[in-house]
């Protein structure tokens, strides 16, 4: 799969779910790509590097989201 195709799949799927949630587990993303975790990680790392996705961390758990989405980014003036 090309990076652009993977990116399109992820962005499309995440936007569809934006009404109900803005943060996603890594397994959600590898599920969207229908890939094994290690393979999916290469594409997802690149998407973070390119600013398509951003990390969110509670300290114990990490999640991914589209930049600027969700309540927190605005509330903390981090968007």
């Amino acid at each position: 799969m090309e990076q652009a195709e993977a990116q399109e799949k992820i962005v499309e799927a995440l936007k569809l779910k934006l009404k109900t949630k803005s943060k996603f587990y890594f397994n959600d993303l590898s599920g969207i790509l229908d890939m094994k975790p290690r393979e999916a990680k290469k594409y997802i790392n690149k998407m973070v590097e390119d600013g398509i996705l951003e990390y969110w961390s509670s300290g114990s758990t990490s999640m991914y989201g589209l930049p600027g989405t969700g309540k927190q980014a605005g509330a903390e003036n981090e968007d």
Binding site: F26, N27, P37, K41, S60, T61
Partner: peptide
């Protein structure tokens, strides 16, 4: 440095 595990 780049999280992809289910947890810690």
């Amino acid at each position: 440095h780049r999280p992809a595990f289910p947890y810690k």
